[in-house]
């Protein structure tokens, strides 16, 4: 309990799409080394950052994520030699597209984290969580009209409240 417990009004929901060889192993190292970091990130393990289709990010925002983090190996370290180079180009374009669509680009994070960088991993997760928490809920996207939402069966949590 090195950090102590601080309660916040809003806890963000963050999706992480990470490369299996570097960032996921880095997270693994952070876990086995018993480092503290924010528990808000839901990680999805993928073979390579080149496998991360921007469609995943769009879907994550649609499903109510407040922030999305994409992470992979450093340039030159890709297990498949060149996947992260493609990812770098694609995400440059995608970030500009999201920005043009009016989504705050601070909600989207891209980083290189190697399997040995457990400390960098915890720092980036903490920093990004705080950043998204300051931005607040992704109201714009959440408020987009889904006329069928009201007809869905409510979860037990919602119907109790």
């Amino acid at each position: 309990m090195s950090k102590g417990i601080v309660r916040h009004d809003f806890e963000p929901k963050i999706m992480g799409f990470v490369c299996k060889w570097c960032t996921y192993s880095g997270a693994d190292l952070a876990g086995t080394s018993r480092m503290d970091y924010s528990p808000h990130v839901r990680m999805v393990r993928l073979p390579c950052s080149g496998r991360i289709d921007p469609q995943f990010v769009i879907k994550a925002f649609e499903q109510g994520a407040d922030g999305v983090i994409i992470s992979g190996c450093h340039p030159g370290d890709c297990h498949y030699n060149e996947g992260n180079y493609y990812a770098r180009r694609r995400n440059l374009a995608f970030r500009n597209l999201m920005e043009f669509n009016g989504i705050d680009i601070k909600r989207l994070e891209f980083s290189w984290i190697s399997a040995a960088e457990a400390i960098k991993f915890t720092q980036i997760i903490d920093k990004f969580t705080n950043q998204v928490r300051d931005l607040g809920p992704n109201e714009g996207y959440r408020a987009l009209l889904d006329p069928y939402a009201s007809r869905l069966v409510k979860s037990s949590e919602e119907s109790a409240a």
Partner: peptide
């Protein structure tokens, strides 16, 4: 179903972002 097929705003956002991304460059 990656892109919501219903024509509500959420699905429309998904479609136009996808379309624009596929045409980049």
């Amino acid at each position: 179903s990656w892109v919501d097929q219903a024509a509500h705003t959420k699905g429309v956002f998904g479609w136009h972002l996808t379309r624009a991304m596929h045409l980049v460059g």
